[in-house]
Design a binder for these strands. Structure first.
Length: 199
DNA sequence: GACCAGGCACATC
DNA sequence: GATGTGCATGGT
């Protein structure tokens, strides 16, 4: 896939903090809308933990409005910022205990901001694996993650963090470009010849 | 106007 | 444990 598409250079974000904010804002939301919200935060010069946490929830919601679910995400951002500002000791593994940080959001932060070797299971990954017959459509997050990580760990490239980061990015752009159909299997997927016959 | 997009928490059964 | 629902903007 990388030979086909080229390196994706994920995650888009200038700092680890921007990566974390983007991970929350992009929940069930197109990245183009997240970019507008982040641009608003940058224009207001509040894209750093202390300044962002100093905003009221309505102020924050107004700035992130283009990302959708702005009231929900303002609450989620503040719950993340409260822990980050007041009690986070750099222990990223505690992310999942924070309200509004589910497994995918936490894994995105761990992989792209924290430098941990994690496989992010998102909707595209789930769809691609299901349609190629490698998993059930209703497979749980952790089960699918174990399947992917055990397959990746057999590869010598897996020692490099960059390999894990770009692996996820490649799956997402593949999902965007070729797997939007409602067909049960991607019979016409141009990537079929590029993908392994099994995980 | 309908559908979709780099989810999550909560209620209900 | 499984399923359904609310949250909300912007592009196609």
């Amino acid at each position: 896939m990388r030979a086909h598409f080229g390196h994706q250079h994920w995650w888009p974000g200038e700092t680890p903090f921007e990566v974390c904010v983007g991970a929350i804002l992009t929940q069930n939301t197109a990245w183009s809308n997240v970019e507008r919200a982040i641009a608003n935060l940058k224009a207001a010069r509040v894209l750093e933990p202390g300044k962002l946490f100093a905003l009221s929830e309505p102020q924050l919601a107004a700035l992130i409005r283009p990302a959708g679910y702005f009231n929900v995400k303002a609450r989620r951002l503040r719950s993340f910022l409260r822990v980050l500002v007041e009690e986070f000791g750099g222990e990223l593994e505690r992310l999942l205990a924070i309200h509004g940080i589910g497994p995918e959001t936490a894994d995105s932060m761990l992989l792209y901001a924290g430098g941990h070797h994690r496989f992010v299971i998102d909707a595209y990954t789930r769809r691609i694996f299901h349609r190629h017959g490698w998993s059930r459509g209703d497979a749980g997050y952790e089960k699918l993650q174990r399947l992917c990580e055990s397959a990746l760990n057999h590869k010598p490239q897996a020692a490099r963090l960059d390999y894990w980061q770009d692996y996820h990015a490649q799956l997402v752009i593949t999902g965007k470009d070729f797997c939007r159909t409602r067909q049960p299997r991607c019979a016409e997927c141009p990537l079929k010849s590029l993908l392994p016959s099994k995980v």
